[in-house]
Structure formats: C-alpha cells, structure tokens
Design a protein around this nucleic acid. Structure first.
Lengths: 105, 105
DNA sequence: AGTCTATGCCTAGGATCTCTTGGTATGGAT
DNA sequence: ATCCATACCAAGAGATCCTAGGCATAGACT
C-alpha cells in the first residue's frame, strides 16, 4: 500500500472521527470501509498512530476489558479540526490528479 | 507538493501521453492542467524523468532548435501501457480514500 | 558592454514515510 | 498441549520528494 504515502495520517484521522478505536481494530476498519482496498500492515499503522499522538491530534488510554491490553485512540479537538483540513486537501489533490489523468481508458 | 508522493510518475506519464515534452515544459503543463494546483520543483520532476527513462517507460532525445538545448521525452510502448495501468490504480485508490473520508464537511 | 531575468538542464543530501521483519504476550479453539 | 488470532511495539531498509545549490544560453533593459 505504498500509494497511501502522505495520506495515511488523514485516513487514520477520518476513521477515528467516527469513534475511538485501537490499532488492530483500526486496520480492520480501514479495510472494511475501503471495500477491501486498504490492507495496511501493523508496521505502517502503529507508527502513524504514535506520530499523530506526538502531534497532539489524537490521544490514547489503555483499555483492560476482557483482560486484553488495548491502546484506544480518540481524536483531540485539534484532531477534529485536522480531519476537515485533511479532507479539504484530499479533495483538492484528487481533483488535480483527475484533471491530469483525464477521462482516458 | 509532498502529497504527490508515489503518484508523480503516473502524472508525468499522463502528461506525456498527450504528446512529447521537455522537463521545463512538463512542469508548466502539470501546473496548467491541474488548474494551478501542481507547482512542482525541478528537483522533483527531473529525477522522476530519469527514473522513468531508466525504467524504459519514456525515452528522450536532444532538441537543438533555437539554439536552446532541450531534452524531449516521449512515451515508449511500455509507457503507454503504464499510463492506463496507473490510471486504473489511481481510480481504485481515490475511490478507496473517498470512501474513508466520507461526505463530511 | 554589462546586468538581470527567464529558460533549461542537472545533482547531492536531508527529511519523511511506509514496509519488512522480528519480537513479546494473551485468549480461545482443537 | 499446540496453534492461531488478537494486540502491541521497534529497528532498519528502501523509496521518493524537496531544498539548495550549480551551470549555461537567450533576450531585454540600462
């Protein structure tokens, strides 16, 4: 999934905008909501989560239900603003790329 | 323009699919056809062209008209196939991202 | 004649990001 | 008892884009 490069953070934020989730669950949600397109390895998603937390866009807490340790992430106020920003950027970007590729085969 | 990461090669191929061009002109075409969105520095585009030529997707020749030296690039047969492939990949990818971002603000 | 700007090519190095590969641990099923 | 899914993490490799330079010619302006 090298094509997500530069867009992964926005995607993670967008999923978390629909509710808190832990890393492993997030990978499932990204796959499900993309119609199976995104099959992201843990080695991509976990670093992204740490990055976003360092940036103050998400925050985490440990959940101990069922005895399984899970780090659950949720958007901060800044994160909620960031989602809208990333979505706007994505729309501009994809419109630009669409214009270049045109309506070919 | 860090967002193009991973998609620049496809964009370059798409522009060259509409006719040969030299590097400097390519930068103009990318800006014009994207409605001013893509303002790519030479340091991004020239390496991309060299990459694509090494990969056999484009080929170049020197043009000396007007005394100005220009390296003009054109798609190879493999390059023409690659454009269609890249466009399909882009469509899949952008549909997946759209699905994740949803129809929010 | 000299200078400036636009055109036109190029490269080295830094920064960032994703992926590969490996490790650790628990819970449930066989 | 063993295996697989769940669940977290980190180190290092690889790829790519940008910054910041360098070099050269043509045309315009002073």
């Amino acid at each position: 999934m090298d094509a997500v490069r530069g867009h992964l953070d926005g995607l993670v934020l967008a999923v978390l905008a629909t509710g808190p989730a832990h890393g492993y669950r997030l990978i499932d949600l990204l796959r499900e909501r993309s119609g199976g397109f995104f099959e992201l390895p843990e080695g991509s998603v976990y670093p992204a989560l740490h990055r976003l937390e360092r940036a103050g866009l998400i925050e985490s807490g440990w959940s101990a239900e069922e005895g399984r340790r899970r780090r659950v992430y949720a958007l901060t106020a800044g994160g909620r603003r960031a989602v809208d920003e990333r979505r706007r950027e994505w729309r501009s970007f994809s419109a630009a790329v669409d214009a270049i590729f045109g309506t070919g085969a």
